[in-house]
Amino acid sequence: MSEVVLTGVVKRYGPVTALDGVDLTVPAGALTAVLGPSGCGKTTLLRCLAGFERLDAGAIRVDGREVAGPGRHMPAHRRRIAVVPQEGALFPHLTVAANISYGLDRADRRGDRVDEVLALVGLAGYGDRMPHQLSGGQQQRVAVARALAPRPSLVLLDEPFSALDAGLRAGLRHDVREALRADGATAVLVTHDQGEALSVADRVVVLRSGRVVQSAAPGTLYREPADQWVAGFVGDAVLLPAVASAGAARTPLGTLPIAGPTTDGPVTVLVRPEQLRLAPASGTDAVTATVLRHDFHGHDALVALRLADDTRVTARVWDSTDPVEVGAEVAVRVDGTVRAWPATPVPAPAAAADPRPVHPVA
């Protein structure tokens, strides 16, 4: 298991700064997801870790060994870092076993490492098959097995499930996570899919404009986002204008208790859709709303609402067997505390920084 530490990493492409002083620690044996919008620097970060790009400043250490730094650039083939690209990039003329053993030394090729990693990814007995005989999901499993086979210091996964169907993607990413854990691998997953990052990673790093905005466990990131941009980017969010005073915020949904420190005055409040509770409208002082839309998702439903002051909010309803009628009036209340930040403009995502593809390390 190898800890990876990035210190002040800067990477520029002409006038564009793709990474702007990135400080990041990837814990040994953990899966860390790097999440962010297009152009935030995710792929550039992966390329710098892999050794495909030289740093303009800063340093990268893998298991205490400096692989990039001032005046130093260890070539990609010497870093013991494996990359799983978006599409498996298997050699079409080689069997599954030959694809996996391609980067192994002679001793490991004669041993049982190939069978071991095939079992880890759920493909025991598939060694004699050719890539064209496999489904897309199976090919990605082989790509992960090939990455794990030489026991690399670090495994980099570049949106490896993005080309797969949604149903297949969900199951495969959890199987791959279990394979990485069983092999004790340290891994970095680059993704733009918030659900993917939150569901499989031990730690999630959010990038914006080439900088780390927040690095935390998935639950902490969701419940305690660093700012309103992260709140809106990670999961569904209801962001409301409010005025804070004495630990509470006056909002269109009523006066709500604030969790964590805040200053009095104008703020932006975060309410997650699952905090909103709906009930039949009554003559009490409850906040009322009109139902605009009811989107059924099977396990739950999202209900779009318009408050009396024309504010739009969304509630997540878990018992969705009896849908709320569009046009009906309902009472709305907020369950629990809210987060709040001083009212400031939300920054826009940066322009795309590096369109070049990532290639696997042999």
Rank of each mutant, 00 (worst) to 15 (best):
D115W: 08
M74N: 02
S162C: 11
A328Y: 12
S245T: 08
A289K: 05
L46Q: 09
L49W: 06
L292H: 15
D23Q: 04
N99Q: 04
P355A: 14
E274Y: 13
F296S: 10
V26E: 08
A185F: 12
A98L: 13
V84M: 05
V358E: 03
I258D: 02
H174N: 13
H359V: 15
V271K: 04
G184A: 04
E274Q: 15
Y126S: 13
R250Y: 00
L168H: 02
G195H: 06
D322Y: 14
D63F: 01
V267W: 00
G210D: 10
L221R: 15
L156V: 03
P252S: 11
L55A: 05
G58M: 03
A57T: 02
P349K: 10
A351Y: 03
F91T: 13
A315T: 01
C40G: 04
R250V: 11
P342L: 00
A201L: 00
D300R: 13
D158M: 06
V303N: 04
T288L: 09
A59C: 05
L276S: 14
H297N: 12
A166P: 09
F91E: 12
P241C: 01
A201M: 00
A231M: 12
I81Y: 13
R12N: 07
V206S: 05
G64M: 02
P360M: 05
A201Y: 00
G36Y: 01
A76G: 01
A242R: 06
I258T: 06
A246P: 03
